[in-house]
Amino acid sequence: MLELLATHYAYALMFVLIAIGLYMIIANQNLVKKVIGVSLFQTAIFLFFISMAYVEGGSAPIVPADETPGELVVASPLPQVIVLTAIVVSIALTAVALSLVMRIYAEYGTLREDTLTEVRADE
């Protein structure tokens, strides 16, 4: 088990971060903290892609100025590009979620999920 954790450390960390993000989405009553939970979940997925691209003893994906470079030990650029795109999409998602949170506060005067459920039930 310990050996598995040592060789798969990034994937193990990814699963634990997904669990923490899920916990925040389910258990935290404050809407802002729920949005932070979603954001944390996303960074766990980014870590998954980055650790797939990683190669032991390699270097960052910079290639020499040579049309036939031969054997190169550099990280795979493709998962890294996907993550770059996903980070920008995640900030767009966070911005929309937080603006919705601001509207909810303007409408109901609370950010707590339990209070919101009560207020909505009374209507």
Binding site: T43, L47, A53, Y54, A60, V74, A75, L84, I87, S90
Partner: peptide
């Protein structure tokens, strides 16, 4: 951690945006 995993471009984006 991204820098350690050989992704400096992603690390810079994460530091600026995240």
């Amino acid at each position: 951690l991204y820098t350690y995993l050989l992704a400096p471009d992603v690390a810079m984006t994460e530091a600026a945006i995240g």
